[in-house]
Amino acid sequence: MEKRVVFRSAWLPYALLAPQLAITVVFFFWPAGQAVWYSFQLQDAFGLHSEFVWFENFTALFADPHYLESFKTTAVFSVAVAGLGISISLLLATMADRVVRGALVYKTILIWPYAVAAAVAGVLWAFLFAPSIGIVTYVLKGFGVDWNWIIKGDQAMLLIIIASVWKQISYNFLFFLAGLQSIPKSLIEAAAIDGAGPARRFWTIVLPLLSPTAFFLLVVNIVYAFFDTFGVIDATTMGGPAQATQILVYKVYHDGIKSADIGGSSAQSVILMIIVIALTAAQFKYIERKVQY
């Protein structure tokens, strides 16, 4: 039976929607609109003088090899963070699902890192890997590895990937565990009776049934890598060395806030906005079709 609420009043539905709409307009559409407006302007740092320059900020961006480099950095970073984050937490969740004794303790500890703020996570890992005083650095030195992410770009990248993945694992873990526990035991038992080993059961039964969760996490993790890793980067590498860890969102902040280039930075956020809209649309349109519910 279909349930439907019919409003007889002409204004009531709008009044009920108004608070949510107001929030969306004030906190989402208004700033986004401002970004679009600023992206067509050339402005000095203090906002005392501005000039409408059409698409100059955009053409300047695409002529800048560092901006194009930032796309590559972002791609490497977000694929690594989403890929590693999802696979490690899937592994942990499958293991945790099998634990019988002390499961609660085990699970609680795995969920902990999610309560840590991004900036704190960044500082934590930066300390462990600090070029002159870090414990990990000290150990690595023993193995003959010269660890100095202040100057080595690939090491800096590795550091922020580790910190970002570590922070996101708990979140993914939680969802995977819930997904695993909602898989009917009877299916797995039936397969076991038919002679399928644990690996076979995982690939043919568990994983397909987990695919909606995995798909959801893919979207969330990509968005996380694109935007929420800002704190980790700002607390550790600050986009350096030589822009090796400058992902798109960090470059928006850097150019806009630190270098006071409002126009260029707004143009970047407009581009970023378009990318995320396109990415999310594509994910739902194409990938979701292949997901078995």
Binding site: I151, K152, G153, G240, P241, A242, Q243
Partner: peptide, 10 residues
């Protein structure tokens, strides 16, 4: 940034 590229040997 450019100096860092030199010091990193890039």
């Amino acid at each position: 940034e450019e100096l860092e590229a030199v010091f990193a040997g890039k």
